[in-house]
Design a protein around this nucleic acid. Structure first.
Lengths: 223, 223
DNA sequence: CAAATATAATAGTAATACTATTAATTTATG
DNA sequence: CATAAATTAATAGTATTACTATTATATTTG
C-alpha cells in the first residue's frame, strides 16, 4: 500500500529561501542531515556541505543565513512531523488514558523506519535531535529567537500532550513540566545509553525507555 | 559561626596544571565562571579571559588544554560539591523516604547563597551548569573522554541517589534513569522557565520545581 | 645565589563563519 | 523567441577562533 504523502510546511521565518522549492534546497537538507549525524554539528560547515553536494558555499547561504538557523529548521521540521504522528496515533481513541499512553510512545520511542516519501530521513534526523537539539536553545539569542517563533512547533507538541494529561486528570498542576521532562528525558536516556550507560538502566533489546516514561507519567498524574 | 571549609579535590586528568596551586590558576577559575555566565560559552575565549585577568592567553593554556576541558573541570567541580551537599543533607537520617526527599531537594533546588570560602561562586556556577553543561557531553569525543574519567563525579552523584531510591523500593527497576531524568529535567525546567516558559508551569515565588520532582519520584517508585 | 619554574610577549597557523562581487547559467514572461 | 529576472557558481576577502611555538623576563625555591 502506498504511504500517505503528508506535507510538512515550515514557517518562512526559518529560512531565507525555501529549501523545498528547488533541487539544491532539498539537497542541502538531505545532505546536511547525513553530515551532521556523521561528523557532529561543530565539525559540520557549509563549505564541507558545498563540496559534498557539488555546490558552492555561498549558494547555501541563500537558503540559510547560518548553520544555526539550518539546525533550527531541522528541529522545527522534526516537531511538526511528531505532531502529525501524534494526531494520527491518537485519532479515534476515546479513552483519555489510552490516548495519553499512545502519545508518550510517539514521544519516547525509537524511530526505526524512514518514511521514504521525502528527502528527509527521519531515522537519522531523530539521532540529530537527540545529539544536537540542546545546542539550538542553549544560546544567548534564545529570547530573540523565541519571540520570532523559532520554537513554535516544539511548544505546540508539548501543549497538545499536556492537554491529554489534563483530560486524564484535570487537577494535575504540572502538565507542561511533566511532558517536557518526558521529551527531554527520553532523548537524554537514548544519548546516555549509548555513551554514559551507567546513568541509565537500559538493557539491550527491551524498549525500557518507553516503559519507564509511560509508568512515570501514569503514576505521577494518578490522583 | 564560621563556615566549614571543605576542600574539593579535582582529578588531575581534568587539568594540565592544577589551577588551585596558584593565584593565576584561581583567577582563571573565578573569572571564567563570571565570563561564561555573562557572555555564554561560545563567545567566551581564553584571549578575552586573559585580557580581564591581566594575563596572557598562552599562560592560561598551561592550565587547561582547551576551553572545553575548562568547562568539564567546572562541571566536575560542581558535581563534587553537590555530592558533598548530598552527604551532609542526608547524614543521620534514618527514614529512607526522608533521605531521598532531602536528596531530591539538593539536586533540584536553586542555589541562593555563595559559600564564600572559595574563589568559586556556586550561585553563578549553577547557572552555568543549567545553561552550558549539555554542551560538554554532546560532543563527538564523549566516549574517549568518558573513558578517561571526565564524567566520574556526575556518575557518582547519580549512583548515590539511585542507591537511596533502592532503599525505599528495592524492586524498582529504573533508579538511574529516574535520577538522571530528575537532574537533567530540573535543569531544563529552570532554563525553560526563564526562556521558554510555556514549556513549564513555574509560577513566580513558589519552588514548584522541587515539589514537582519530589512528587514525581515518590509516586513513580511507589509499589 | 643559581637553577628551576612560571609567566608574559610576540608571532604565527589553519580553519571558521561569514560577506561581497562578479560571472555564468537557468528560468520566466511578454 | 528574445530579453529580463532570478538563481547559482566562482573567487576573493575579513575578522575571529583556537590553538602552537619560541623567546624573554620574572619569581620561587633549594
Amino acid at each position: 500500500m502506498k504511504k500517505l504523502e503528508i506535507h510538512i510546511k515550515i514557517d518562512s521565518i526559518l529560512y531565507t529561501k525555501n529549501p523545498e522549492s528547488s533541487d539544491l534546497g532539498r539537497n542541502i537538507i538531505s545532505n546536511s542531515i547525513k553530515m551532521i549525524d556523521n561528523m557532529g554539528f561543530e565539525s559540520f560547515t557549509f563549505k564541507k556541505l558545498g563540496v559534498t553536494i557539488g555546490s558552492n558555499e555561498s549558494s547555501i547561504y541563500r537558503y540559510f543565513s547560518s548553520k544555526h538557523t539550518l539546525l533550527v529548521y531541522l528541529i522545527s521540521w522534526y516537531w511538526s512531523w511528531i505532531e502529525y504522528k501524534l494526531v494520527f496515533a491518537t485519532a479515534n481513541i476515546n479513552s483519555p488514558k489510552e490516548k495519553l499512553t499512545k502519545a508518550i510512545k510517539v514521544l519516547t520511542d525509537t524511530i526505526t523506519e524512514d518514511s521514504s516519501y521525502s528527502y528527509i530521513n527521519e531515522v537519522i534526523l531523530h539521532r540529530i535531535i537527540i545529539a544536537e537539539s540542546a545546542k539550538a536553545y542553549h544560546t544567548k539569542d534564545i529570547d530573540a529567537e523565541n519571540e520570532k517563533g523559532f520554537y513554535k512547533t516544539y511548544k505546540k507538541v508539548v501543549q497538545r500532550v499536556s492537554d491529554m494529561v489534563i483530560e486524564v486528570n484535570p487537577d494535575f498542576e504540572y502538565p507542561h513540566m511533566l511532558i517536557s521532562t518526558v521529551i527531554e528525558g527520553s532523548h537524554h536516556q537514548r544519548h546516555f545509553s549509548k555513551h554514559l550507560p551507567s546513568l541509565t538502566d537500559v538493557t539491550k533489546g527491551k524498549s525500557n525507555i518507553v516503559d519507564f516514561y509511560t509508568q512515570l507519567v501514569l503514576k505521577t498524574i494518578d490522583s
